[in-house]
């Protein structure tokens, strides 16, 4: 087995053009992803967290090669797939699968669920006939659906069951990596728990890697091994789950954690540090550090110079001028 990471992304950039005028010329661009690097090891969950427009879903789509990156490299198991044309990419698609937020819109309503789940197996020529049926039945069982449900159609399932179908489908071809974009956001909490448990069980059983995209910090804390916090197209902090929740360094991470609610009325008394203002438009991101317009700790440098993402402690990367190497997680002061 190779020791290369299941997925490695280097300097990924994705700009979407803004077209305008009579001739639909390019009048600007949305910098959805603006130079992002990370890697995911076998059996690991990397969480991508951030608010709307931070580029986390775009990263998922680029990694799946559903859209082409503007710049940067994508390596699957050490192999550069960034410039592969669709035909050449096909052979790699088996290794990277996806599950979506809304499984209902991702499942063909006219096909019985057994056929749906078996599609990738057929597509990649991995099974046919009686063997296909058997393997699909096993998948149904593994994700907690009764094999006799194979004859039912998508609309006959509940939301949680549909998400199980989506998981079975992704799982069918033994992928190395599953990109999961908000897979539990549309589910009620009691069902969300069932799906999160299933995802963790499957990961441990098959050594799957997950790129887990979510806005929900509590879900992140539960399922991730490492977490990357994104703001306006850039990673601002990337570290282990424990370091992020117990010793985060970036002011935006602090703002996110302090704004999130928890089911504990005692937390209310704690003075919350609520960051003011809205996220700026990714079509017109502020110069320098993108967060400086809302950051209480910003200094002159932050307004002009984008801070690089640097490793300030082993495995702890942060992009902040106020967090030098070895600086430690001391509270920042608003007056410099």
């Amino acid at each position: 087995m190779s020791t290369a990471p299941v997925l490695e992304v280097q300097g990924l950039v994705k700009h979407f053009p803004i077209l305008g005028g009579l001739l639909q010329r390019r009048v600007g661009e949305v910098r959805a992803v603006d130079g992002v690097s990370f890697s995911i090891a076998r059996g690991e969950t990397l969480g991508l967290v951030g608010e709307s427009g931070c580029g986390k879903s775009t990263i998922g789509k680029v990694v799946l090669k559903l859209i082409e990156p503007t710049a940067g490299r994508i390596l699957l198991g050490g192999e550069d797939v960034s410039s592969l044309k669709p035909g050449a990419m096909w052979a790699h698609r088996r290794r990277i699968q996806t599950i979506f937020q809304d499984p209902y819109s991702a499942l063909n309503p006219r096909l019985p669920s057994g056929t749906l789940v078996g599609e990738p197996l057929e597509n990649f020529g991995l099974a046919r006939g009686a063997e296909l049926g058997e393997r699909v039945a096993k998948l149904f069982e593994r994700v907690g659906l009764r094999p006799d449900a194979m004859r039912k159609f998508a609309h006959e399932f509940s939301g949680g069951q549909r998400q199980r179908l989506g998981i079975a489908k992704a799982l069918s071809v033994n992928p190395d990596l599953i990109v999961a974009d908000e897979p539990v956001s549309a589910l009620d909490v009691s069902v969300q728990a069932q799906v999160l448990n299933l995802l963790i069980d499957l990961q441990e059983e098959y050594g799957l890697a997950y790129l887990f995209i979510s806005h929900d910090l509590a879900v992140m804390r539960h399922i991730s091994h490492r977490i990357a916090v994104m703001y306006l197209g850039r990673i601002v902090e990337l570290t282990t789950k424990r370091a992020l929740f117990e010793g985060h360094l970036h002011p935006y991470t602090e703002a996110l954690l302090s704004a999130a609610t928890a089911p504990d009325p005692a937390r209310r008394k704690r003075r919350r540090r609520i960051v003011q203002g809205d996220v700026p438009s990714p079509a017109k991101p502020p110069p320098g550090c993108h967060f400086h317009t809302r950051c209480p700790y910003a200094i002159a440098e932050c307004r002009t110079l984008a801070p690089p993402l640097i490793e300030v402690a082993p495995g702890h990367h942060v992009a902040c001028h106020r967090r030098p190497v070895g600086g430690g997680p001391h509270p920042l002061s608003t007056t410099v």
Binding site: Q192, A193, N197, R221, E246, L257, A262, D264
Partner: peptide, 21 residues
């Protein structure tokens, strides 16, 4: 059933299972 933001989830490096309804 809810994942907790305010409580360390891992025990001995292992992610616990949420209680399902």
């Amino acid at each position: 059933a809810i994942p907790r933001l305010d409580i360390e989830a891992d025990t001995a490096g292992r992610r616990p299972r949420l209680q399902e309804i």
